[in-house]
Design a protein around this nucleic acid. Structure first.
Length: 633
RNA sequence: GGGCCGUUAGCUCAGCUGGUAGAGCAGCAGACUCUUAAUCUGCGGGUCGAAGGUUCGAACCCUUCACGGCUCACCA
């Protein structure tokens, strides 16, 4: 844990230099920035620049997030984590050193048994214990808290998030916060005053700004009786009636209530940025009181913060409640959305607006949107300058590999500088994307189609920007249905279909992840209409009328002789022509073909579907009909 | 009671530093009689919730109001 400052080494904030702030503000306003970049600019402006050589407090910016692992950490909770990650990245992209801490508030009390706990009634015996002392109801981990912590810790690297975890139970027990606790006790009246401003009932006269876990039964049903003005605290265990005096430096059983705990830890970790949910951000909410307590009791200026809104799940209605146990976690989202797209969902939405995550047909659209964003980033799709900058930045922030994104950003910036210099000389106007020397979102894509070295010799920083081969989600779904979920076979078919579909190893790995998501989606969420499975020559042949049979034979003949020279349109026309020449309604003939191929009345757009299946597969499925024809003939 | 956020084309929403309103979907027309929100092309004047105000100019800034939602005032 590098450079964690002791509370005692607390020093005043560096003096603000208004001109610098103004400059940063101006830079921030200068351009249409991504919200993450705007907040990064604000952090720098309001907190004073980090200086790695200074050591201690100002060596880096500290971005913090955290939660109580008292139930499944759901996708709504995840918003805070990724929000901090995005701002942390934006800071790093400006060249600022960042420490990203994630606090597991696992010294909190177990207050309610969630519904997803097996044998919930029996579990009530653990109420009022700290959640780290509650056993894992599923028997795998060392504690109830650990179950939830581990689930998140295991999955975050998948989406490119790797914070430094702080375990509060451990820290409290170790006595790390003894100084902070004593300061709270000493500031008792100040804290009381602050909290009372927003309470209906004033805090009782015997109230103390601490809570104690009894050392007799480990529960927090205790009453503080006295404090000696220094380290010794006397309390009574209300369950057992025992009374004892403990040293808060070593007892480890004294903790601060949330509204005091939060500002204490801001000061302790010297937090510069920490957003919070809207329950903390109304007037009189915990951010308000924490800000005041931080300043008056801990001599620390509250971090830059903002409010993020809730996430909902389309079709689930209402807000996510972890106590109900029925909850969508990140793992669930990752089953259907590949990691970069999970990031994209959050990076592309302003944090203060609510949005719903969908598992229905919208999934296809989200994938298509992401692919378009990628094409804009690589200059394949041309759009207006404003949109290009915006989409490109979103794309960068969506990448799981932070190093990749940063390298791309640097290359783009270098490219933008060059083209900018040329442009401004030539036109006398501000070249788009060139002005941003300091910290605006770097231009994403240099001019498309222009070789990297066109502007004068090879540039070592301008690595060739080869866009990945995109595997459209919808098409991928059809391929997977054709291969009955065989991912490698589906991707092989995709690659074989077209020279331009050849993928690099990394590209193929990404496609594999996408294919797993697509298959999960098909199985768990896609509408019934969407699914099909291919019939095979071994299946009982479909009963057909005379004309239908003949038409089918004709089509087989057509496919045998001319399949490979067909394109989608002429194949489609051929199907129509055959239907008409056999006195069949085209629609009926289509239905016949779907019945024969996939045992359904409808299916994917036929011509393209046949092409996707390929000559060999189609003829193999149709073989029984051909043979019967021969017998008859 | 305090605070915050919405209210923009039929629907979902963009519009972040004020300069004569945009996108997707739906719809309509055409393209191949069209099938898994099928594909391509063309078509978008809506009192930007209401009323005042600032401004040469406001969806965007200020004030007031209406409606909808959220949140705090218990714990975390």
């Amino acid at each position: 844990m590098p450079g964690v400052p002791r509370p005692s080494s607390r020093c005043a904030l560096p003096e603000r230099t208004p001109p610098a702030i103004l400059r940063a503000m101006a830079a921030q306003k200068n351009k249409t920035a991504h919200w993450a970049d705007s907040y990064a600019a604000r952090v720098v402006a309001e907190r004073g620049a980090a200086d790695p050589t200074a050591g201690g407090a100002r060596a880096h910016f500290t971005c913090a997030s955290g939660i109580t692992p008292s139930g499944t950490i759901h996708i709504g909770n995840f918003r805070e984590i990724i929000t901090v990650d995005l701002v942390a990245r934006a800071l790093r992209d400006r060249g600022e050193p960042v420490r990203f801490i994630y606090s597991w508030d696992d010294y909190d009390v177990f207050r309610k048994v969630p519904k997803n706990v097996p044998d919930a009634e029996a579990f009530e015996q653990y109420l009022r214990l700290p959640i780290t002392k509650v056993p894992d109801p599923w028997g795998a981990e060392e504690s109830y808290a650990r179950v939830h912590e581990k689930r998140i810790e295991n999955v975050l690297p998948e989406v490119g998030i790797t914070p430094e975890y702080l375990y509060q139970a451990e820290r409290y027990r170790r006595g790390e916060y003894a100084g902070g606790i004593r300061a709270a006790l000493a500031g008792r009246e100040t804290i009381r005053e602050v909290l009372n401003q927003h309470r209906t009932e004033p805090l009782p006269a015997d109230w103390w700004p601490v809570s104690v876990f009894s050392r007799f039964n480990e529960r927090d049903n205790t009453t503080v009786l006295d404090w000696d003005g220094d380290w010794m605290l006397t309390y009574r265990c209300d369950d057992t009636g025992n009374t004892e005096t403990v040293d808060i430096r070593s007892a480890g059983c004294v903790k601060l209530p949330w509204r005091v705990d939060w500002p204490m830890r801001w000061a302790y970790e010297r937090v510069d940025f920490e957003p919070a949910g809207k329950e903390h951000h109304s007037a009189g909410g915990s951010y308000d009181t924490a800000r005041e307590i931080a300043s008056r009791v801990y001599g620390y200026e509250a971090p830059v913060s903002f409010k993020y809104d809730f996430i909902s799940i389309k079709g689930m209605g209402g807000k996510i409640s972890s106590s109900s146990g029925e909850v969508i976690a990140i793992d669930d989202v990752l089953e259907v959305y590949q990691p970069a797209i999970v990031r994209y969902l959050f990076a592309g939405t302003r944090p203060n607006s609510e949005f719903a995550i969908s598992f229905d047909l919208d999934v296809i659209k989200i994938y298509e949107d992401y692919d378009r964003c990628e094409r804009i980033y690589y200059g394949i799709d041309e759009v207006g300058e404003k949109k290009r900058l915006k989409e490109s930045r979103i794309y960068e922030l969506s990448q799981v590999d932070e190093a990749f994104a940063r390298a791309e950003a640097e290359r783009a910036e270098a490219g933008a500088r060059e083209t900018g210099a040329v442009g401004s000389v030539a036109s006398g106007e501000r070249a788009p994307g060139a002005a941003g020397a300091d910290g605006d979102p770097p231009a994403g894509a240099p001019d498309s189609g222009v070789p990297a070295d066109a502007a004068g010799g090879p540039d070592p920083t301008a690595a060739p920007r080869t866009p990945p081969v995109q595997v459209p989600f919808r098409h991928l779904c059809n391929l997977l249905l054709i291969t009955a979920g065989d991912i490698e076979a589906a991707l092989d078919r995709f690659e074989a279909a077209n020279e331009a579909h050849r993928m690099s190893a990394g590209n193929r790995e990404d496609a594999r992840v996408r294919a797993r998501c697509a298959w999960n989606w098909i199985q768990k969420h896609a509408p019934e209409d969407f699914r099909f499975s291919l019939r095979s020559a071994g299946d009982e042949p479909v009963e057909l009328g005379e004309a239908e049979h003949k038409a089918l034979q004709a089509l087989i003949g057509e496919l045998e002789t001319r399949f490979d020279s067909q394109d989608e349109k002429s194949l489609q026309s051929a199907v129509y022509a055959i239907a008409r020449s056999h006195d069949l309604e085209p629609a009926d003939f289509f239905a016949v073909l779907y019945r024969v191929l996939i045992g359904k009345e409808k299916g994917p757009r036929l011509a393209g579907f046949l092409m996707t299946l390929g000559r060999a597969t189609v003829l193999e499925i149709l073989r029984p009909y051909r043979e019967r024809t021969n017998e008859q003939g």
